[in-house]
Amino acid sequence: MKQIAIRTENLSRRFGRFPAVQDLSLEIYAGDIYGFLGLNGAGKTTTIRMLLRLLKPDAGKIFVYGNDLDAAYLEIMNYLGGLVETPTFYPYLSGRENISLFARLRMLKSRDLINSIVNDLLALVGLKERADDKIHIYSQGMRQRLGIASALLPCFIPNLSKSPIVILDEPTNGLDPQGISDIRNLIQKLNQEKKITFLISSHLLSEMELLCNRVGIIRNGKLIISEDLQTLLKQEGVEITAPRRHLEKYFMGLI
């Protein structure tokens, strides 16, 4: 039986009279790449903010590897990484300095270890060449890559008690096709090699289809389905063929 990485029980949150999330009960298994889909305003970001404890739920509980997020917050946040909406950094610091600062906040003491992790992360997200540039001259795509690097920090911390979970809200926002492809490959690689669990929200359904093994669809704050992707498509009678990536291949061939 698969281990449950994240479980929510009747999670609810209102903004004034508007119910952003209602009775959301969700299960994400360890090792999943879980696609969290929904229209604008459906409640994806609110749910993600609650999962990262940036927002307190009005009702309901969140469990990470069976531990109550409220009770075991300090321990859980060690292996939880996240990116919410547009990533933001200190503009007077370089990309490397920003990631180093966030690495220090993960209680890494050794300077050598921090440098090695930061170098690995920057190389993984394709920012090694521009790592020492100040953030204020970064393009939106570069900031997005750096945001993903900061979310992936727990994946590189040695001796964690649990396998890391990374929550990414619209990670491909502002990325060019090359960037989207790079990030997709990176997520798949980390998932396969390091058994990292991912929860990803996105509007790009074709991307989600290429990336995820399970999906949940949220509408008006309610989770209407949470299922294995292949099973879901079979249920709907969709003919499953190899994903069509002709234009992407042609584009990559040209650049």
Binding site: R49, L74, M77, L80, G82, L105
Partner: peptide
């Protein structure tokens, strides 16, 4: 104003 709080608050701190 910078929006860095959401990155900092994800770190394991109270």
């Amino acid at each position: 104003t910078l929006g860095t709080l959401k990155t900092i608050f994800i770190a394991p701190f109270r």
